[in-house]
């Protein structure tokens, strides 16, 4: 991991562009996330935060720009040569996206599908024992080992999100992108999940970027805050030096419009 691309950040996004039917969502976005760093991405609704993350993991195809993982460029989605590189990035979603009828453990094991041959992965019964043990360790890391056998749909929102993070760990991802991971959770559960992400970055050396809608959570847990306005990073500061004015500037209701009119 350290051998290749030493010095390069775990994730580097350069000049990412995306527009939907003429409306620019990402306007040459740059974003770096280093190993061991927890970056909070802030911005008003529609500023391109989620689109940026979805472009990085290949759920959307960007119009332009490059994504580098440890200094190596990731090819377009479906490019066989980049499959191994892509597997190093995991994503956590606002809607969580676990399979509700399957147990928490089976959901976590599914994170490893990318490195399993079909004969060991056609049904959960075929998952090798080492994988089950690794998945239990991942669940234990997020504090959910005692609920491993329960169907994911029966867990609370916060618990489900922690299981989803365990799935990302079981993927052995070095980079975790979280798209509004706590927007649907109550404040206590939200704090728990965000502090878990911060811990994973600090203790496990993962590169983590999370889109958040609560500046207070970002200030409390993140190492660095990136603020997006109209598809560009306009704020990039250590969380400790983030000012209230910085935050307010991101959420001015008509900022985008005045920007466009001025240019």
């Amino acid at each position: 991991m350290a051998a290749q691309g030493a010095g390069a950040p775990a994730l580097a996004v350069r000049g990412l562009r995306k527009s939907y039917s003429g409306r620019t969502v990402l306007d040459s976005l740059d974003l770096d996330v280093a190993a061991g760093e927890f970056v909070a991405v802030l911005g008003a609704n529609g500023c391109g935060k989620s689109t940026a993350l979805r472009c990085v993991v290949g759920l959307e195809t960007p119009d332009g720009g490059t994504v580098l993982v440890h200094g190596r460029e990731v090819g377009p989605a479906g490019d066989a040569g980049s499959a191994e590189l892509r597997r190093r990035t995991a994503m956590v979603f606002q809607q969580i996206h676990l399979v509700r009828r399957r147990s928490a453990l089976d959901n976590v094991c599914a994170g490893a599908l990318g490195r399993l041959p079909l004969r060991h992965s056609l049904t959960p019964a075929l998952f090798p024992r080492e994988l089950r043990e690794e998945a239990m360790a991942c669940l234990d890391r997020v504090g959910m080992a005692d609920r491993a056998a329960e169907p994911a749909g029966r867990l609370s929102g916060g618990q489900q999100q922690r299981v989803a993070i365990a799935r990302a760990l079981c993927q052995r991802a070095e980079i975790i992108l979280a798209d509004e991971p706590v927007s649907a959770l109550d404040p206590a559960a939200a704090d728990q999940v965000v502090s878990l992400l911060a811990e994973l970055a600090r203790d496990q050396g993962l590169a983590i970027a999370a889109v958040l809608h609560q500046p207070a959570l970002a200030a409390r847990h993140a190492d660095r805050v990136v603020g997006l306005v109209a598809g560009r990073a306009v704020v990039d500061a250590p969380a400790s030096r983030l000012t209230a004015a910085d935050v307010d500037a991101l959420y001015v209701p008509d900022l985008r419009l005045t920007h466009l009119e001025a240019s």
């Binding site: 990035t89 994503m91 979603f93 809607q95 996206h97 676990l98 994170g111 599908l113 079909l118 799935r167």
Partner: peptide
């Protein structure tokens, strides 16, 4: 959603269908 989540993790089409 669950399909997208597994696709991101690198699962093949058959694996996504099965899981």
């Amino acid at each position: 959603g669950p399909r997208d989540a597994l696709r991101v993790s690198g699962a093949s089409g058959t694996q996504v269908a099965a899981h």
